[in-house]
């Protein structure tokens, strides 16, 4: 029953995809009005004006261009012309580094908040104020203090991914079932061992959920951050190709951002499944 449901869902998915491609193709075939003009002027105006062709590329143009990128992902022809693999690599590295720093800070701090009602109450006002700040609002401050655009982007990733992890860790740790703690207490298990053998495994699913939310936010923010910072990365690529008026490349970048985001989410989802225990 489930396999047939899966099959039917796949068929519907493919049908929707084909319909979307078909509509896109028809919509961009280009039968707009053609202005009459002198040949010299026409040469300046480009295909949009002379043949009534839409500036929006069709699926075939995008497919062909995508194939070109896939064939040569790592070429480097100077600052404004790098392969998409390199651009994505820069973005993933920034996200990875900022996210990793956030993990190092958020999980131990979350443990502390979860275990100590005092720390929880003391830090609460700060967290409440800092959490809703758009990560990009930190950018000027980061640029001024760190004085390095690359590091500032990493800082922005750090600050945006720290909150969901921190709050989920604190919640997960505070919500560990009392009876499990009591088991550890009656067995005279020390605080450190208790933290690793009871609280960590019990809170792991909640912590991983926070980490999964964080990686999603980090990947959302990196595009915007790189548009501001410039130089390298997929966000910069999108903005650069917009300045080049290459809608084809912009569409390809959008597609790849989606694919990478999905992969990151799936990796964390797999980790979450690994630490989840049935009750």
């Amino acid at each position: 029953m489930t396999s047939s449901l899966r099959l039917r869902a796949a068929i519907v998915s493919i049908a929707l995809f084909l319909a979307f491609i078909g509509i896109w193709h028809i919509a961009t075939r280009g039968t707009g009005a053609v202005a009459t003009m002198t040949p010299e002027y026409a040469r300046l105006m480009g295909l949009t004006a002379t043949h009534g062709k839409s500036a929006m590329p069709g699926p075939l143009d995008v497919g062909a261009k995508l194939w070109e990128h896939v064939k040569r992902p790592f070429y480097d022809n100077g600052p404004n012309d790098k392969g998409l693999g390199i651009q994505l690599g820069y973005s993933i590295a920034r996200v990875g580094l900022g996210y990793f720093l956030a993990v190092i800070v958020a999980i131990p701090l979350g443990f502390l908040i979860g275990m100590s009602p005092l720390i929880n109450k003391a830090l609460d006002p700060f967290i409440q104020i800092l959490k809703p700040i758009s990560p990009l609002a930190w950018m000027p401050l980061a640029l001024y203090t760190i004085k390095d655009s690359g590091l500032s982007a990493i800082f922005v990733i750090f600050i945006c991914s720290v909150w969901p992890m921190l709050l989920n860790t604190a919640f997960g740790v505070a919500a560990v079932r009392k009876e499990w703690i009591n088991v550890a207490r009656t067995l005279e298990v020390g605080t450190v061992r208790r933290a690793f053998t009871v609280i960590l495994p019990a809170a792991a699913p909640t912590i991983l959920t926070g980490m999964r939310i964080s990686i999603g936010i980090a990947w959302l923010v990196i595009v915007a951050a790189e548009m501001l910072v410039g130089g390298t990365g997929i966000g910069y690529f999108v903005w650069n190709e917009w300045n080049n008026l290459s809608i084809t490349n912009v569409i390809i970048a959008i597609l790849l951002i989606g694919v990478v985001g999905m992969l990151l989410d799936q990796i964390l989802a797999r980790f979450t499944r690994m630490v989840t225990f049935p009750e």
Binding site: N182, R185, T186, E188, V198
Partner: peptide, 29 residues
């Protein structure tokens, strides 16, 4: 004074650690 390994508790809700096997739960003690 406080809990002790001399006094074992059997909890109403059994309170097993669900991420450990049967052997793991006993071995933990």
């Amino acid at each position: 004074e406080g809990t002790s390994l001399d006094r074992a508790v059997i909890f109403q809700s059994h309170a097993l650690l669900p991420w450990r096997s049967v052997l793991g739960n006993v071995a933990y003690a």
